[in-house]
Design a protein around this nucleic acid. Structure first.
Lengths: 163, 163
DNA sequence: GGCATTCTGTTCGCATCCTAATTATAAAGG
DNA sequence: CCTTTATAATTAGGATGCGAACAGAATGCC
């Protein structure tokens, strides 16, 4: 077995909890989703993109970037890999020769059920011990934090204390 | 200017919000922290490690992995880069010839203020519009989610629906 | 004592994300 | 029309994280 995994994350109620817990949760969710998807030859990020296309096929790469909250460079690489594995294909736009639209191929649409179910399972396990109102509250607070961060990244950064 | 950044994340209250918001928040926090640290030649992950050493210097790499919630491979690479940039140094353990302990160098300890202040600033901006009790509740819920995910990753994975 | 097991750290290869810079195309203004 | 500006996608290069597989050292059990 791999000797790289190092076991439980520290649980001390130390002040750095606030600093790392967001990253821990995000990474653990990715890990769990990857475990579900590995048998199907997919990764978590790829499934987020495919699920997006299942809802509205034929998006441009810029649209996908916006919808997924990542940059166009990341989309470009992911579509490369998805195309190489025959999950999607790029097609020219017709009206604008710069843009390429991404379409699902049959291999992807036939796995529709797996894709949405995997994401749902991760949510179910994440929120297992939370009540319905608690989940709502958590998501509501997270949306507000995301808004704060968006504002902070959009504006001028306050200067740090002098070195 | 860079044309890779693609602007605001979609704000539709769609059902995938739960699926991506954790990653959005984690990544935005990293981005903000990186912006603060770039002038000092540091990255966010490096500062998490350095801050850990500021609290207790001379940890082994396995201890650091546990405290940071990452694998030993990731720690190895990060210590490589930190050592190359002269922020830390590895020293043998004396009792156990396998282990290497990581110590801060003067260049790091002299920036102590910057390191902790940057992390504090990111928290302040993240929680700007939240009241004190709301922050507490958010962190409490996040800790429970982390616990759920830890359990899920430790146990047997439920099998997905058939393809 | 000796051999199997466990543990620490590393190297390798990969996926994902970033910024900066480049190419190609489209749109806008004089 | 033609120059400037904006947009879509890509390439190049780096950081972070993972799992697999390995070497070397410690430990445990007979």
């Amino acid at each position: 077995m791999p000797d790289t995994a190092v076991a439980p994350i520290d649980d001390h109620p130390s002040e750095n909890e606030a600093g790392l817990i967001f990253q821990h949760v995000a990474r653990q969710r990715i890990k769990l989703l990857d475990a579900f998807l590995a048998p199907h030859g997919l990764t978590s990020a790829q499934v987020y993109l495919l699920n997006r296309l299942l809802r509205e096929d034929g998006r441009t790469q810029v649209e996908l970037a916006r919808l997924l909250g990542i940059g166009t460079v990341a989309v470009s690489g992911m579509v490369d890999r998805l195309e190489a594995a025959d999950w999607v294909e790029r097609r020219p736009d017709g009206k604008d020769r710069r843009t390429k639209r991404v379409f699902l191929k049959a291999s992807a649409t036939s796995k529709k059920h797996v894709l949405s179910e995997a994401a749902a399972q991760v949510n179910a396990l994440s929120f297992e011990t939370l009540s319905e109102p608690e989940v709502e509250q958590l998501l509501s607070l997270m949306r507000r934090v995301r808004g704060n961060l968006r504002d902070a990244l959009a504006g001028e950064l306050p200067t740090l204390v002098r070195d």
